[in-house]
Nucleic acid binder design. Structure first.
Lengths: 203, 203
DNA sequence: GTCTATATGACGATAGAC
DNA sequence: GTCTATCGTCATATAGAC
């Protein structure tokens, strides 16, 4: 295996393990064993254990992990254009829920790194989350100017919306399968959350 | 210092450290140093490191940490009795936000233990969160029967509400101080979230 | 009840052969 | 590029003196 491939393979193995057990809960020996190489190989590709952690976000950025929920959704962009609010918030919700839950490892990793106050979470926050606030908040402000939504700090509405979505995904990932306190499809969840927010902020 | 006091002291020192760096990120040596005792003392009071972790929830339960947001709030109970929905949801929100943010360490600890799938989070979930769902969900169902709130799964409304609250508190704890993406008082947040939810689910 | 001293193993990281 | 073997350090946990 070439150096680049091996490096990628180690990185993805490490992402899986870090997302399961956190940074300090994962040993280089485990990563090596899971990747099917010796520990020494790890340290040929990454000088320090923490270098693996730092490389994760670059890898995500290079692949599709940092794509925005609206980039590929023609239906959403069309709804925005037509100012079909119900559709806009439903599409935003369903995209967010599906994406979050399709990459459980990354969401767990983000939580870990936020708690550990690692650069990873901070960069994700300023590069990704801030733009989401700008995008959704911008749409709400536009609709406020149209007189369709009531006057309020649009960022609070965004926080409420993202709060429902992220909290629900975390619940699905961490609890619902075993505990089943609330067992609904993402479609149901997205419809309900979109409707609650929309009725909640309309004029 | 008597055994009980020393045990409590070690426990609280450990809670602080676990909440900052997680279970595997905290060493018994650090706990000992922070508590001002030798490492051997730790292992006299707790046979294994993980026993400290397990003892945390019992300690919380013995103290005030597991109290319900409505137990001490006469204003809330009165509002429920009078069916003053706006007041009910505002009081629930402000209580939750204040409590979550007054015990940052515990919230961080819960997040860590949820990710680590430790008993701690699971017990908190089934002993505390489930009852919150029952309480708030019960009130919503009552108001649905009154015809004041629209037909929907009340648990979804609860999840949306708790999502706003918990997500906002996590943002405050983990980000807002440094990044200031959204700097509002808990009062403002509670008013807005309560209003969004209420308008969102009323008939 | 607390200490010093230490056992035992796992940890991150390196050296050197192939 | 990969391995085996090993380093020094730090981890959890224990023994025995005071």
């Amino acid at each position: 295996m070439k150096a680049d491939e091996r490096r990628e393979q180690i990185l993805h193995t490490a992402i899986d393990l870090f997302s399961l057990k956190g940074f300090s809960g994962t040993t280089t020996k485990e990563i090596a064993r899971a990747a099917g190489v010796s520990e020494a190989i790890i340290f040929r590709h990454f000088a320090k254990k923490s270098d693996i952690y730092s490389a994760i976000l670059d890898d995500k950025a290079r692949h599709d992990g940092m794509k925005f929920p609206w980039e590929d959704d023609a239906e959403l962009l069309d709804a925005i254009h037509r100012k079909d609010d119900a559709k806009v918030f439903y599409r935003l919700a369903i995209n967010a829920l599906n994406k979050q839950q399709s990459d459980v490892g990354f969401l767990r990793l983000l939580m870990y790194s936020a708690l550990e106050e690692h650069e990873l979470a901070e960069r994700f926050f300023s590069e990704f989350v801030a733009r989401v606030y700008g995008f959704i908040g911008g749409y709400i402000e536009e609709r406020q100017r149209d007189g369709v939504m009531r006057e309020m700090d649009a960022r609070i509405a965004v926080r409420a919306f993202l709060g429902m979505l992220i909290h629900h995904s975390l619940n699905v990932i961490l609890w619902d399968k075993r505990k089943a306190l609330l067992n609904i499809t993402n479609k149901e969840a997205a419809e309900n959350f979109a409707q609650i927010l929309l009725r909640g902020i309309k004029a």
